[in-house]
Structures are given as structure tokens and as C-alpha cells.
Design a protein around this nucleic acid. Structure first.
Lengths: 105, 105
DNA sequence: AGGATCTGCAATCCAATGGTTGCAGATACT
DNA sequence: AGTATCTGCAACCATTGGATTGCAGATCCT
């Protein structure tokens, strides 16, 4: 299985502030400004984070007049999870096979 | 669900070289020196990567005489996948509920 | 039109990190 | 014993990246 696009996804998910953003978005769509009011970082910092989250497709921008709201795409997380699960199973399968060969079975 | 320990895991998985290492380890246990022979980075760089991978528990060191071999723990990846999948489902559930409320259903 | 608010871009700063080289300690081989 | 090999520690460098401030453009409201 190709690892490929998984890496940027994990890199995006490997930051605490971004999870705070995702968690906040779990309560409904919100703009960068709105998020900045309840998170301990600047609007611009949040904007950057939203950009990387959008880049990997885990969040989606929705223009509403002059503001841009974001919403989480849960299915993207689930899809990533499926791929990761497959990789984990694959590793166990191969290593078990190798072990059996090594033990002469 | 607590996100907690997921973040360091994703941070660990969010690096290309580390996936090269994991992939190489998929063909069997190997030491840092052995890995350095087939990857385009130094042994010490690999050693550092193995340290962070071991820190999050996706890899396990096995001392064999004077060398230290590492093996992938596939089940850790699967476990992470399960948690991520649960989060994805949770988000979709909540956002669907919010949407229904907003539509007055 | 004028004010308030939201977004976007750019420059800047500092810490974290991926990578390197060099050296010392430990273990194996002959 | 002596040599070769493997690990581990430390210093160091360059780049990335999270975060900030400042300013300009766009949109809404009265």
C-alpha cells in the first residue's frame, strides 16, 4: 500500500493547537476570528492552521458573506484511519510470516 | 473522547524519513546501522528517528548482543487508527445533529 | 458616505527539529 | 591482546514552523 498522502495528513494532525481548533469546530462551523476569541492564539495563527488543515482536506472553508467559516470533514479522518489500520495489519501479517520462517515453520 | 496521546503519535508519523524507516522495518527487524546502509541518511539521524518512534510505542528496541534491533508494532498503528476512526465518526455525528437543529427538524 | 469588522498578505522572531560530524564506551572476532 | 564494529552522547548547523505585529482590501451596517 502506498503511504504517500498519509504523511502530510499526519503532519497536520501532529499539532496540539490544530486539535484545539478541530475540537472547537466540533461544536459547529466557525470563522478564524470566532475561533481566535476562545483559543489562546492570534487570528492569523489560526488562519495558518486552518490553511494546513484545509490542505489535507480535513476541514472545509465556507464563504458566508465577508466571513469564511470552516467545518470539519469527519469522513476524512475516518478514511485516514482506515488506511492506517490497513497498514498496521499489514505490518503484523508480514512480521508474523517472517518470524515463522525464522523459526523454520 | 480524549485526544491526548494521539498528538505525539501523529507528530511521529508525520515525517517522511520515519516512514521510510518503518517501511524498511516491515521487511524484518533491523539495527540503526543496518538501516543506515539502505537509507540516504546517517546512522545518528536514524537513531534519533527510532527514538521518537519508540517513544510513541510504534517501534520496539531489542538488544541482541552489541547491537540493538528494532521492530514495528503494527498493533499500535491499528489502535491509533481505531481512535482516529472513532473521532471521525463522532465529528460527523455531532455536526449532523447541529445541522438538523439548524434546519428546525 | 463613514465606521466597524472580517479576511489576506508580508515581514519578522524564536523555538523545535532534521541532519551532520566527531568522539568515547561497549561488545564481538581472531 | 588488538582490531573491527556497533551504540550512545554532545556540539553544531540549517531549515522549518508556530506565532506575532502591522497594514491593506473587502464587506456589512446605519
Amino acid at each position: 500500500m502506498a503511504v504517500g498522502s498519509l504523511v502530510p495528513m499526519f503532519a497536520a494532525l501532529g499539532d496540539d493547537t490544530r486539535w484545539q481548533i478541530l475540537t472547537a469546530l466540533g461544536e459547529g462551523e466557525a470563522s478564524a476570528s470566532a475561533l481566535a476569541e476562545r483559543l489562546p492564539v492570534t487570528r492569523q495563527a489560526i488562519a495558518k492552521h486552518l490553511a494546513v488543515l484545509a490542505e489535507v482536506g480535513v476541514v472545509e472553508p465556507i464563504r458566508v458573506g465577508r466571513e469564511v467559516r470552516y467545518r470539519v470533514i469527519g469522513s476524512q479522518l475516518s478514511a485516514t484511519a482506515k488506511r492506517l489500520d490497513a497498514l498496521g495489519a499489514e505490518w503484523d501479517r508480514r512480521l508474523t510470516a517472517i518470524k515463522e520462517i525464522a523459526e523454520g515453520l
